[in-house]
Each structure stands twice: as C-alpha cells, then as structure tokens.
C-alpha cells in the first residue's frame, strides 16, 4: 500500500443519514468508505456472520491505513493532526461570527456569503415561504429540514454514545488497535514484536481520532447554542429545531471559506 486512507465506519447505518452530506466537516476522515484492509475484511466478515441485522448497533471504527514507508506515514499523520488543530481554531471563528450576526441589518449588508445565506434562510423561515412537502418550488421544504435535522441529531448522538475504536495498519498489515472509553480509559492491543516506529504511528492515529472527536464535540455545542440563540434573536417559532441544519451549513461554509483563505495565502505568487 502506497497511499494513506483515514476512514470512519458506522455512520451509514443512521436513519436519515442520506439527508446529510457524507463528508467529515473537518475534511480529515472519509465517512463510510468501502474497506480494503485485512483489518476491515475480517471485521466486515465478523459482522456479517455474527450480528443479525438490527440486533446490535455497530460502533464507530476509525481506521488509519498507512503506507509501508514509515516516513511518509508519519508525515501524513502529522499533516492531519495539524489540520485538526487548524479546524478547531476555525470553529472558534465560526462561533464568534455566529454570535456577531446582526438581525436588524438586511442580509445584503452582511459582508460575507455565509452570513447572507444564513440570514436568507432565517428570513424565509420567519416568513411564509415554508412548505410542508417538496412540491412547492422555491419554498423551504419543512419535511426536508426535519429529515436533515434528525439525521444531524442522530449523528451527534452516536458520537456521544460510542467510545473511539482506533485501528492502525501499516503497509496493509494490522499493527495495533486501541479502544478509548468516554472517560479516557485506554485498552491497547499491540501486535507481538511491534517496532518503535509502528508504535509511534499508532499513537499518532489515536491522537488524531481524539482530536477529531474533540472538534466534533465542539461543533455540537457551536451548532446547538448557535441555533438556540439565533432563534431567539430572529423570533423564529420552533427555530431552535429548524435552524439546526442552517447553522450547521453556516459553520461548514465558514470553515470552507477560512480554508480557502489559507490556501490562497499559501499559493505561490
């Protein structure tokens, strides 16, 4: 294996998951990607043979599949760890912008696209351009909003419910797996005779998963408190629920915007 893959499985089984984009807001993990490693093949086989459908809710499994070159693997993990830290900082910026949003101003007066899009949605919700179904073109589909919102809540709930299970393979060979409990208890299983380089790679994989989980938990609090305070500011009936997806999209837009600024700053010339 020459290319790294960072995958998270277990979110596809969520009811209503199709209503949400299948991407990690932080841009670090592939969600529900098809699996190719020895670890994954065995795991999927085990699930297929031992778990009747719907009997047990499968947990979340984070897999870092790293290339045989330890140097490349280390660089890739370091880059993603750095990206996770940067995205955490972007979340703080998104929360600040959410809190600074002015309801009194027309949304054309708000400088950024993300703010304009969010305010447009707030205004539509506050007005009458809301339809229950999807048939009324141009109106916000209430049904679609509910589906998105319920899927978001389910995704967040699953994150909170499950511990982190981290599996690392290097050059296609499984090397270690770690289960991190909600309270921080660790159970680590190492392959016999593992070398220090592979050990360090697995440790970095665990750090990356924990940094991601922290950022996602932060995201929950930014979206939930943002939707609640915006619903009060904008006097949208039921807004604390209906604004959930809109605020989620706002945060995603802000993250994408800040990412683009960073890319532009780093571009030569």
């Amino acid at each position: 294996m020459t290319v790294s893959r960072f995958t998270l499985t277990g979110l596809s089984v969520l009811e209503g998951a199709a209503a949400l984009p299948a991407d990690d807001l932080l841009g670090i993990w592939e969600l529900n990607a098809p699996q190719t490693t020895a670890f994954a093949a065995v795991a999927e086989d085990a699930v297929a043979t031992s778990s009747p459908a719907g009997a047990v809710e499968p947990g979340l499994i984070w897999r870092a599949e790293l290339p045989a070159s330890r140097g490349e693997a280390k660089s890739e993990l370091e880059a993603r760890l750095a990206a996770a830290r940067v995205r955490q900082a972007y979340l703080e910026a998104a929360e600040k912008r959410l809190s600074d949003l002015q309801m009194g101003l027309g949304y054309s007066a708000q400088t950024a696209d993300a703010e304009s899009a969010l305010l447009a949605e707030v205004m539509a919700l506050r007005g009458s351009a809301v339809a229950y179904g999807a048939g009324d073109a141009g109106a916000i589909s209430l049904l679609h909003l509910y589906e998105q919102c319920e899927a978001l809540v389910a995704r967040f709930r699953r994150l909170v419910q499950h511990y982190a299970r981290v599996e690392t393979s290097v050059g296609g060979q499984p090397v270690a797996l770690t289960i991190v409990d909600w309270s921080g208890d660790h159970s680590v299983t190492w392959q016999d005779g593992i070398g220090p380089l592979d050990m360090a790679l697995h440790m970095d994989s665990v750090r990356l998963v924990l940094a991601t989980r922290q950022a996602w938990l932060r995201l929950i609090s930014v979206v939930a408190s943002g939707a609640l305070s915006l619903s009060v500011k904008a006097s949208v009936p039921g807004g604390q629920f209906l604004l959930f997806p809109a605020v989620y999209r706002f945060v995603r837009d802000v993250l994408a915007e800040l990412e683009q600024v960073q890319v532009n700053q780093e571009a030569p010339g």
């Binding site: 020895a38 994954a40 093949a41 065995v42 999927e44 797996l177 190492w190 016999d192």
Partner: peptide
C-alpha cells in the same frame, strides 16, 4: 495487551 501477529486482524471491529 499483546497478541500474536497472525491473530491481530481477527480482533478488528468486534
């Protein structure tokens, strides 16, 4: 924990 290299893959997912 440690486990023989031939068996670590069987621990995945469960």
């Amino acid at each position: 924990f440690t486990t023989p290299s031939a068996e670590i893959a069987t621990l995945a997912g469960g």
